[in-house]
Simulated scan of single mutants.
Amino acid sequence: MRLRPIAALSAAAVAVLLLAGCASGQGTAQPTGTAAADLCAAQAKPGEASDSVKVDGEVGKPSKATFEKPLEPKALQVSVLDEGTGDAVKPGDFVSYAMTAYNAKTGEELATVGYKPGEFLPSQLSAATVLGQVFGCGKIGERVVAAFPASDTAQSEVYVLDLLGTVPTAAWGEPQAEPAGLPKVKLADNGAPTITIPEGQDPPTATEVATLKKGDGYKVQQGDYTLIQYTGVRWSDGKTFDSTWEKNTPATLTTTQVVKGFQKALEGQTVGSQVLVVIPPAEGYGEGKINEADLKGETLVFVVDILGAQSATAGAATE
């Protein structure tokens, strides 16, 4: 059974959205007062169905919900059980959250996901997403009950969701010793890197990976989904050929859908880390092109910030 695919509320649905290019990363423009107000107004109203759900358990831990069956809401209903005590979220914020889902007709528990590291990618809030309609501009620590109506593709369902925190858009790990013999990295106030190639130095002939900041989060495994920021430059001239910072949005990808050298930069690293990787042509783009930029025979240098990761097997719990 597959849960309702609502902006990463189902781990299985997340995988589908990632492959379709529709998951986290829709832009990080700073909210205006109107946008912030729109997010507050976006939260769905409570109703008889959502108000009838009784929930046991602390915020931040798996819950147990009970309700008179069946529940048959005609529209999305959201009841706030705990308003939270942290900062209010804003449009464009990337948030971490967790949930337990139930069949609204039978009361059967369908899945509990997000309370352990590596079960969900952070997702971006906006008034246009279902996640925005669930949490609105709530405070960190908010717990809600969301009752979803049945549709042509999904049964009616009940979710108990916890808003756990916001996720920075730049690596936040502990700075490490500067690696010798590799390009220098200078960070702007927002975390965007400037990469300087060593003058007159030949590039390495094998991929080299150095951790610039060491995060303490989930360790990325082969095939995992990741949420990252990166900048890539050519060793030959130091010019940038691709950067999420220039696009103003992190990227979502799997470790096995990138070139070998980039894969080595991700797997084994922890969430919150920043990684410098130098990739020779054999483990880069070789004779190919990317983003209309000619990278034939180029040694590539990337600085990668790992903002989140989701295990490739996380969706198994929701099937």
Results as ranks from 00 to 15, higher is better:
193 P>R: 01
248 N>W: 09
205 T>A: 15
188 A>H: 12
169 T>F: 08
234 R>Y: 03
154 A>M: 15
223 G>I: 02
215 G>F: 10
215 G>T: 04
221 Q>K: 12
242 D>C: 06
149 P>D: 09
205 T>M: 14
177 A>Y: 08
257 Q>I: 05
258 V>K: 11
197 I>E: 02
161 L>C: 10
208 E>Q: 15
140 I>G: 02
129 T>M: 11
184 K>W: 00
134 V>S: 04
190 N>P: 02
213 K>P: 01
255 T>V: 02
206 A>F: 13
162 D>N: 10
196 T>V: 12
188 A>S: 13
220 V>A: 05
236 S>L: 06
172 W>C: 05
213 K>L: 11
132 G>Q: 05
189 D>M: 14
262 F>L: 14
229 Q>Y: 07
149 P>F: 14
258 V>P: 04
132 G>D: 03
176 Q>M: 15
230 Y>C: 01
195 I>L: 03
211 T>W: 01
177 A>K: 15
232 G>S: 14
242 D>Q: 14
194 T>L: 10
229 Q>G: 06
144 V>K: 05
235 W>K: 06
205 T>P: 04
235 W>V: 04
169 T>C: 03
183 P>D: 01
139 K>T: 10
220 V>P: 01
232 G>V: 12
139 K>V: 07
236 S>Q: 04
240 T>E: 10
215 G>K: 05
207 T>G: 06
241 F>L: 00
248 N>M: 13
229 Q>S: 04
228 I>W: 08
241 F>Y: 02
168 P>T: 04
206 A>Y: 11
238 G>D: 00
244 T>Q: 13
133 Q>L: 07
251 A>I: 01
160 V>P: 04
219 K>W: 11
245 W>Y: 15
231 T>L: 04
218 Y>C: 01
205 T>D: 15
163 L>G: 03
234 R>L: 06
146 A>P: 02
201 Q>E: 14
171 A>V: 07
178 E>T: 00
134 V>D: 04
163 L>K: 02
255 T>C: 05
196 T>I: 08
169 T>G: 02
232 G>Y: 12
239 K>Q: 07
202 D>P: 06
150 A>S: 14
232 G>P: 02
261 G>E: 02
167 V>D: 02
248 N>Q: 13
168 P>D: 08
261 G>V: 04
172 W>M: 09
216 D>W: 08
226 T>Y: 10
241 F>K: 00
186 K>Q: 08
151 S>D: 15
152 D>R: 15
151 S>G: 15
192 A>E: 14
237 D>Y: 10
248 N>K: 13
240 T>K: 08
178 E>N: 00
189 D>G: 08
131 L>S: 05
141 G>C: 05
143 R>K: 09
144 V>C: 07
188 A>N: 09
190 N>E: 12
222 Q>T: 09
225 Y>E: 07
180 A>F: 07
195 I>T: 01
217 G>Q: 06
130 V>R: 06
163 L>E: 05
247 K>F: 07
251 A>H: 01
204 P>M: 13
164 L>G: 02
132 G>M: 07
138 G>S: 03
255 T>M: 06
148 F>M: 12
169 T>N: 05
213 K>W: 10
147 A>H: 06
184 K>E: 00
169 T>V: 13
171 A>N: 05
132 G>W: 08
161 L>G: 01
225 Y>G: 14
245 W>S: 00
231 T>P: 00
217 G>C: 07
198 P>S: 03
